[in-house]
């Protein structure tokens, strides 16, 4: 055993670096798999709700066109609702550039526009969000935990994960 201390330190660093290098490559695979799974879930959850409003508005638009009813208020709400939904991103904006789009606000506007449309139609609103009150509120708690433990600060720009969920759970009780 005749290695000197200098080279020993070097060697330690090299072992560490080798390990780090392999670990990084492996972690990257897991990060991208896990990120995809999360993104799929969030995208589905949000757009299923938005799509619901969209389909609802489109069908009522067709009904009104067929009956050549031109009730201003209803037509106005439908146009506004479809317009708001059209503004909602289908791609996470963090992928492109930091955007100043206020997602929770847009979501709020869409929901209240949908409710306004239902009111003029004399239909009871079905808030899709309400379907999942129970699972969601518990998920939110989980989300908070896992977020702080696994998310690097750089990922805070994943806008849908936190903002909308908090938004939603906060709003659920007011309906």
């Amino acid at each position: 055993m005749d290695f000197d201390l200098e080279s020993l330190v070097d060697v330690e660093q090299r072992f560490y670096d080798d390990g780090y290098h392999d670990g990084f490559a492996h972690g990257k695979i897991h990060g991208s798999i896990e990120g995809r799974a999360l993104g799929r879930e969030k995208g589905f959850e949000m757009w299923e709700e938005l799509g619901f409003y969209e389909g609802f508005a489109l069908m009522w638009q067709a009904i009104h066109a067929q009956q050549s009813r031109n009730e201003d208020r209803t037509a106005h709400h439908i146009r506004q609702l479809l317009d708001l939904i059209g503004q909602f991103p289908r791609v996470n904006p963090s992928a492109t550039e930091p955007s100043d789009l206020d997602i929770p606000r847009l979501f709020r506007q869409i929901r209240s526009r949908y409710k306004a449309l239902c009111a003029t139609l004399g239909v009871r609103p079905t808030l899709r969000a309400a379907d999942s009150i129970a699972p969601n509120s518990s998920e939110d708690a989980e989300n908070g935990n896992s977020q702080s433990s696994t998310r690097p600060s750089g990922s805070k720009s994943v806008w849908p994960v936190q903002s909308i969920d908090n938004q939603r759970s906060g709003e659920q009780f007011s309906f």
Binding site: G27, K28, H30, E34, G35, R36, T150
Partner: peptide, 9 residues
């Protein structure tokens, strides 16, 4: 490595 790829995924 995981954190580096999470966002893109």
């Amino acid at each position: 490595g995981k954190e580096s790829a999470l966002q893109q995924g």
